[in-house]
Design a protein around this nucleic acid. Sequence first.
DNA 1: GTGTTAACGTAGCATAGGCTACATTTTGTT
DNA 2: AACAAAATGTAGCCTATGCTACGTTAACAC
Lengths: 153, 153
Amino acid sequence: MPSRKKPRPTGEARRKQRDPRALSLVQTRRQHAREIAEDYAEAIAELIADRGEARVVDLAARLGVTHVTVHRTVARLQKAGFVSSRPYRAIDLTRRGRALATTSRSRHETVLQFLLSLGIPEHVANTDAEGIEHHVSPETLAAFASALKKSGL
Amino acid sequence: MPSRKKPRPTGEARRKQRDPRALSLVQTRRQHAREIAEDYAEAIAELIADRGEARVVDLAARLGVTHVTVHRTVARLQKAGFVSSRPYRAIDLTRRGRALATTSRSRHETVLQFLLSLGIPEHVANTDAEGIEHHVSPETLAAFASALKKSGL
DNA sequence: GTGTTAACGTAGCATAGGCTACATTTTGTT
DNA sequence: AACAAAATGTAGCCTATGCTACGTTAACAC
Ligand SMILES: [Mn+2]
Ligand SMILES: [Mn+2]
Ligand SMILES: [Mn+2]
Ligand SMILES: [Mn+2]
């Protein structure tokens, strides 16, 4: 038996061994932290493409929250480097924001098409895809795309 | 042109027409609100099955959070009627909690098996399933189960 | 039985992300 | 130019969910 002398660290560092499955839950929480950035980036890019600009009210209507929530969130996303905005002006994506929008949109579309290919009704597939998209690893995304290609033939 | 006289309601009730797609995002947020209850119920049921009881520390290790977070969350779940607990004692599921655990566990398992059937590596499938499970409608769940049955033959 | 320690609980802090109510600015109409 | 309305911003509230630090209780070893 090893003679451990070191006074164990305080706080949560010791404790019962962390279950390895906990990593999946931690990862899921990280994905949730990124989820809003992804949905906003997608929505902003879409609004700019469809109407030339993305306004706070448009985002609010698109995302189902109040303009106040959008305002605060945009400020946070700006601090995080995804968007740029000035008072009373339309919202723009930074280079990083555009990159996020592109990959998110593509992944969202793949997930949606995959669900539709399983025969899920459109309305349901839309909602499920909105949630699922943020939890799909590159591996799973590739598997979805590949299954889609096969079924699409 | 209709002569509208009514002073529009204050607050956010008027505003630009809400995009119908916003409903999906609202639904996704609702699912997130339920997610922790589902994961806790699953974990508690599992611990009880595996070790006879579910302790705060075990849940913390299983879920990847501190015991403090577990403590507070359990209190909230108790208020919501999913668990019962008393100071310094093990945590129990109520009837409702057991029902939630059962359906959550089953859905989780279906999602996981479906991903595995697509050839996703186990480690990745575990993590993806952990996030995806909470966003799978009954329709999609049925489609997964059905695809699984076919592939399983 | 006493002492140590693990488990549990509490206090207090932070961030994210919802909201309403109200203030300000911009924009469009006359 | 002036007014009305829409858009945007600000103040302040709430809940959920994470954390560290520290106090208290229960369990176990001797
Ligand atoms: Mn989404
Ligand atoms: Mn689960
Ligand atoms: Mn989960
Ligand atoms: Mn999610």
